[in-house]
């Protein structure tokens, strides 16, 4: 890399690490909320009437 390997590789490293961190933290955050929401819906369940017309399952598809 013509003497500049440190700079080139570290900048690619920074980019890859940051992209991975953003992706992983978002996915984990989504999972946590998904679990929390499922637990909450089971607890509050009987009071929910809007479910049929505005199915909340749709907002929780996981790829």
């Amino acid at each position: 890399m013509g003497g500049y390997a440190t700079y080139v590789w570290s900048s690619y490293g920074v980019v890859v690490v940051m992209l991975a961190v953003m992706l992983i933290s978002s996915v984990i955050g989504g999972r946590t909320r998904d679990r929390e929401l499922t637990a909450l819906e089971e607890r509050v369940g009987p009071r929910r009437q809007r479910r049929q017309q505005n199915d909340p399952e749709d907002t929780r598809h996981d790829a």
């Binding site: 992706l23 989504g30 909320r33 929390e36 607890r43 509050v44 598809h61």
Partner: peptide, 26 residues
Amino acid sequence: YFLYLLIVRMRGELMARRIRLLHLSD
């Protein structure tokens, strides 16, 4: 990548809002 992440994060944000709503109604 941004588009993908945006979808993931929007889903999370929508769930967070629903959690807040359910807490309130709870």
